[in-house]
Write a protein that binds this DNA or RNA. Structure first.
Length: 475
RNA sequence: GGCGACUUAGCCAAGUGGCUAAGGCAGAGGACUGCAAAUCCUCGAUUCCCCGGUUCGAAUCCGGGAGUCGCCUCCA
């Protein structure tokens, strides 16, 4: 497997720290609002990374934090006159709702800052002892000039940054780039007691303390959006490696932005769409499919029109799975010499080599279409045998286990109905009746009635397709 | 000012030195159908933003230019 490592700027062969195991840390959201599409991209992508590592047989340990101590949470709590921890808890729950909708599996651990204050304090103490940090009026700052490798991730050097820095100079810091490990708390802010007085952790230290706690002083993959490269991840490296003396994360992966009208979707620009707003208009499988249709490091434009054209593509794959199931349920008279033989193995290989190459999900999605095409052709020509169909079905399932586009039913089969429009018993029986009436009309060449039924059903969102084996319908 | 990314058919999007530049959407024609839908078959970039260079050979490497975007401040 090859992974593009931000640290080296190259694709590298993936070598896990421990054979057969992968440890992953992904920066999770600050829980002061519902998540938006920009948050959803890394969520879905790294979920897919995790799934693929599992597919490759690795034992994966996956950690994603919640930043539940933060200025923005405090601001919201003051505005709404509720406790900061209640704000955080509320949006953690809302996060899970969105993540579940997007078929994102839970991390093995979802650590929260508020529950790791001791680990954070210990780590800061170590940095103070080692003279990497200094204290000013109850604040503790990391001294970036003490850490020689500072800038190795983002590819900048201290001098350049100082020259062009637009950071408002904080007189308490000895270098403008020094960053807070511990912040003295103001009135009406949550606080914890520490050797430096009442306060709370700075932003970056949490990820270092928590990743080290759960994954060890050195681990395999650290992921997040590319806006985190500087300063967040740069600072994580500095404080972690300063504290432990070891290489922090071995591979750094960063996803590109979601764009709106060629501009980055961001909270400060106000041009963001909440995941749940989007899910009101588009089904979650489509959203996930769309996110994975572009390579993760490329920017991805987000607008309704593009979603809409993706919808047709996804429908094509869904149709193919339906066709496959249908054929599987009809006993195929004789086992024809199959046209699929060999092709299925090729497709599987293509899928794997796409994913092996820095998680090229866009190419992998292409192989999904190849598979669909193969299935459609063979089913149409009736030149298949059941074993082939079974194998094709398994392949769809295998690919889907990695990409996570379609949900699965209780039997582990892919749900072919569009998400949110599952058929139920009443609907089934009603449709049986209606289609029976329509079939009669057709038999009597009463096409006006037959077409009227079909057109009316279409208007309410039900598509009827006539096949040699009778009609089929879908929502 | 510093650093970096991107520019491939109407649209989306793979491809990073060499067979005919994946795939999807849209579009055209055909098969199938009572008509449709679904599906299948056929068709689209003499060319990869522009200009130079390296090379037997470049969309792919190097130099220059144009445009777009991002990071350097909270942000996924």
């Amino acid at each position: 497997m090859k992974i593009y490592n931000t640290l080296t700027g190259k694709k590298e062969n993936f070598q896990p720290r421990e054979a057969g195991k992968v440890s992953i840390y992904v920066c999770g959201p600050t829980t002061y609002n519902y998540i938006h599409m920009g948050n959803a991209r890394p969520l879905v992508f790294f979920d897919t990374v995790r799934r693929y590592f599992k597919f490759k047989g690795y034992k994966v340990y996956y950690v994603q934090n919640f930043t539940d101590v933060d200025d923005k949470i405090i601001n919201r709590s003051l505005k709404e006159n509720v406790k900061a921890e209640d704000v955080a808890e509320r949006f953690i729950n809302e996060y899970y709702r969105d993540a579940d909708d997007l078929n994102v599996k839970r991390a093995d651990v979802h650590p929260k800052v508020s529950e790791h204050i001791n680990e954070i304090i210990e780590m800061i103490q170590k940095l103070v002892e080692k003279d990497y940090a200094y204290t000013v009026n109850g604040n503790v700052y990391f001294n970036v000039s003490k850490f020689n490798d500072y800038g190795k991730l983002s590819g900048r050097c201290l001098e350049d940054m100082q020259a062009g820095s637009r950071v408002e100079v904080d007189y308490k810091k000895s270098n403008p780039l020094d960053f807070a490990l511990w912040k003295a708390s103001k009135e009406s802010e949550p606080y914890w007691d520490s050797p430096w007085g009442r306060g709370r952790p700075g932003w970056h230290i949490e990820c270092s303390a928590m990743s080290i706690k759960y994954l060890g002083t050195s681990f395999d993959v650290h992921g997040g959006g590319c806006d985190l490269i500087f300063p967040h991840h740069e600072n994580e490296i500095a404080q972690s490696e300063a504290a432990t003396g070891e290489l922090f994360s071995r591979y750094w992966m960063h996803n590109g932005f979601i764009m709106v009208n060629k501009e980055k979707m961001s909270k400060s620009l106000g041009n963001f769409f909440l995941v749940r707003e989007v899910l009101e208009k588009f089904p979650p499988d489509l959203v996930r499919f769309y996110l994975l249709s572009t390579h993760y490091r490329s920017p991805l434009d987000f607008d309704d029109e593009k979603l809409e054209s993706s919808r047709r593509g996804l429908e094509r794959i869904r149709n193919s799975i339906r066709l496959l199931e249908e054929a599987l349920h009809q006993d195929n008279e004789e086992c024809a010499s199959s046209c699929m033989t060999g092709r299925l193995d090729d497709i599987k290989k293509s899928f794997e080599s796409a994913m092996d190459d820095d998680f090229n999900t866009a190419l992998a999605v292409g192989t999904l279409f190849d598979l669909a095409h193969e299935v459609n052709t063979c089913v149409q020509n009736r030149s298949y045998c059941i074993e082939d169909l079974q194998k094709a079905k398994e392949l769809f399932s295998t690919f889907n286990n990695v990409l996570g586009i379609f949900k699965k039913d209780v039997h582990g089969d892919i749900v072919t109905e569009q998400a949110g429009s599952e058929k139920n018993d009443v609907a089934e029986k009603l449709m049986d009746l209606i289609l029976d009436i329509r079939q009669n009309a057709r038999k009597n060449k009463d096409f006006a009635t037959a077409d009227k039924i079909r057109d009316t059903l279409k208007e309410i969102g039900i598509t009827v397709e006539d096949t040699p084996n009778g009609p089929r319908w879908k929502i």
